[in-house]
Computed example of a mutant assay.
Amino acid sequence: MDKNYNYLEEFEDFLGGTFHQDISSPEQALDEFINEVSRECLVSTINDCEEFLNNHLTKEEKEEFIQSNTEVYFPAIEVTPLQWLYTLVEQMREGLKTK
């Protein structure tokens, strides 16, 4: 992997580029992302998400990072940002099966 690769920047780009203010719903945005990207991109995104989930930040810092980089209103979907991200990773893993 490129030594200049920064998973946090890539993760931030994924969140902001996929879950922005113009989406119909977070579910539809994720479905579109899974269907439109290559298998390699999907694997890379899953790895970035997992690296974020396993990094040194506190739970609160992780949740703030997710909220700051998405246009998802978490109280409306009744999950925390971290619960939501864990679900996204699982859904992307399922999406890999059809790539």
Rank of each mutant, 00 (worst) to 15 (best):
I66F: 05
D2R: 00
G16P: 00
F52M: 05
L53N: 07
I66L: 15
R39D: 09
S25Q: 04
L96H: 09
E64G: 08
V37H: 12
L42M: 09
C49N: 12
G95F: 03
I46A: 12
E9C: 02
E64S: 14
S68A: 14
I77P: 01
V72G: 01
G17W: 10
E36G: 02
S24Y: 01
L88P: 01
T80F: 07
V89N: 05
E9T: 14
N55E: 09
T87N: 13
E51L: 08
M1T: 07
H20A: 08
F33G: 02
H56V: 00
D48M: 06
I77Y: 09
S44F: 10
W84P: 05
V79S: 10
L57K: 11
T45W: 13
E63D: 11
Q67M: 13
L8T: 08
E71W: 14
Y7K: 03
D13G: 08
H56F: 03
Y5W: 07
K99L: 13
S68H: 01
H56Q: 07
F52T: 02
E64N: 14
N35E: 10
A29N: 10
E61H: 12
G17M: 08
Q28C: 03
L53F: 05
V79Y: 05
P26W: 15
T87Q: 14
L15N: 01
E9V: 13
A76Q: 14
K62C: 07
D2K: 03
I66E: 11
N55G: 08
R39M: 11
F33M: 00
Q91Y: 06
I77M: 10
E12C: 04
E50P: 00
I66T: 00
E94G: 10
A29K: 06
T80K: 08
V72I: 15
E9A: 09
E63N: 04
N69A: 06
E61W: 12
E36Q: 10
V72Y: 09
N47C: 13
L15T: 00
F14Q: 02
Q91S: 05
